[in-house]
Structure formats: C-alpha cells, structure tokens
C-alpha cells in the first residue's frame, strides 16, 4: 500500500520552476533514495512535503493507519502531526537545550496533560512526565546517546548531532521519515555506522523512509528504489542497478555526450 503518494507536485518561485510535475510513490516500509546533482531541487521537494513551502500545484497524500489524507498546503506542525518527520541538511538542533530536551520537545505533541495538571502536580502529570522521559531515553539508546542525555546539543561532536537529529525526528512518531543528507560531512566509518542505524530503524519502527544523499555508497547499499531529480524533474527511477546503468542519469551527473568525449 502506498504510504506516501506524490502527484504532479510543482513549485514555482516567480518565473523559476524549482520542482515540476514530480510523481513519487512510497510503499509501506520502503527505503527510497532521492538523488540528483546540486541544485536539482531535492531539498525543495522535502520542503514541499513538510509544508515549509506551499506547492504551486499537485497533491501529497499521506496514509496513516489505512487512512489517506491530502496534506499539501497544511501548516508544517500539522503535517508533522499527520506523520511526516524530517532531519535537516544543515543541522538544526535546539543547540542551547540538552540532548534529552531536544527529543522531549519533539515528543511533546503526544503529551496529554494540560497546564492545570502540571501546576497542581497531579499524578497524571508526574506519570506522563516519567513515561515521556523513559520513551526519550529509549530513543537516545537507539542512537547511542543515552549516556549524553544531560549535555547541551551544541557540545556534541558533529556525527552525534546528526544522530540526535534522527532521534528527534523519530520522537514525533512519524510514519514517513525524510532524511536530508544524513551522511553529509561524515567519514567512511561514521557513514557505515549510520547506514546500519538507518536500516535498523526502518525495520524496528516499521517506517517508510525517503532519503536525500550524495554519498552514493550509502544510497546504493541501502535504498531499494531510487528517484533521480534533475532541474526539478524526475528523470529516472528504479533499483540501484537500473539507476547505475541509466543513460540519462549518467548524463545529468557527468554532462552530456560523455561517451563521445
């Protein structure tokens, strides 16, 4: 069943069409890559999916618990609640908050208690709070940050900040996770660790993942399917093997007439 279905998604900024007629379909539990040269519009697609930009045309349908919902044009926080979460190309953690608080804030939409019960320290508040911290710690354990829960996010080394972003995205309880260049700036060892983490998360959280990445070793290794974007249009889609052999993709990456040169 298609969890995320994107139809004829288009975004124009004035006269410039950054994304045009993009169709994508992600099946439940799939791990799909979105690749393309710099400036192809990959991050714009993410921004359209998460509501940062409003699409000029097209529909985005997100299915949660068997119920499809058109989410294009909704506010980002509502799209997040509908089940779409993301990480950022340039890390956007809440730097002056602790590692735990970063995750806790993201989980905050699932908290039920109101102000009054928090004030009066009602048992419901204490219980929810304890459960919340426990759930956050679980997530941090998955990304190997449980030992650093009390540290400020800005004090973490780069690779761990990326992991924390993933944990924070998971905390919003998504059905679709969008990862924007999770391996950017990582060394091969860190990338390998991240690759493992992503596969593990997908299996254990039963997530559908869409991934933007420049690191081809990572993309080819873990993605089942790949969409290739160039000049805002999908120019190819298929399995990693098909993509590797696709002439249009090679042209987009290496320039035209590569065989004649």
């Amino acid at each position: 069943m298609a969890i995320l279905s994107v139809k004829k998604l288009t975004k124009s900024f004035g006269g410039l069409t950054a994304v045009s007629n993009v169709n994508m379909e992600l099946q439940e539990g799939e791990l799909v890559g979105l690749i393309g040269p710099n400036g192809a519009g990959k991050t714009t697609v993410f921004n359209l999916l998460t509501g940062v930009y409003e699409p000029t045309a097209g529909t985005v349908t997100l299915t949660r618990n068997g119920k499809g919902k058109e989410i294009q044009g909704m506010k980002p926080f509502n799209i997040c609640k509908a089940g779409m979460s993301r990480t950022f190309q340039n890390i956007r953690l809440f730097k002056d908050l602790t590692v735990l608080d970063n995750v806790r804030i993201a989980m905050h939409q699932n908290v039920k208690y109101g102000l009054a019960s928090a004030f009066l320290h009602l048992p419901a508040y204490a219980k929810e709070e304890a459960q919340l911290v426990e759930k956050c710690m679980e997530l941090l354990r998955i990304v190997h940050l449980d030992g650093k829960a009390g540290e400020l996010a800005s004090n973490l080394p780069y690779g761990e900040q990326r992991h924390l972003e993933i944990a924070r995205a998971l905390a919003t309880d998504p059905v679709v996770l969008l990862l924007d260049e999770p391996a950017a700036g990582m060394n091969p060892a860190e990338t390998a660790q991240l690759t493992e983490l992503i596969s593990w998360i997908r299996k254990n959280f039963q997530l559908t993942i869409l991934l933007i990445e420049h690191d081809m070793s990572l993309v080819m290794k873990i993605c089942e399917r790949i969409y290739v974007l160039d000049y805002g249009m999908i120019i190819a889609s298929g399995t990693p093997e098909e993509i590797k052999a696709d002439k249009k993709v090679i042209e987009a990456y290496l320039g035209e007439d590569v065989n004649d040169a």
Partner: peptide, 17 residues
C-alpha cells in the same frame, strides 16, 4: 524555548509556533 531557538525547526517538529 524551542521556538526561541529555531522557529522553523520547531514548527517542523510539530510545535504550533
């Protein structure tokens, strides 16, 4: 606190800014 640190990221994490 989240909004004061990064409004856009907060909104994408489900916070009604």
């Amino acid at each position: 606190r989240a909004v004061s640190l990064d409004k856009d990221a907060a909104e994408l994490m489900g916070i009604n800014v």
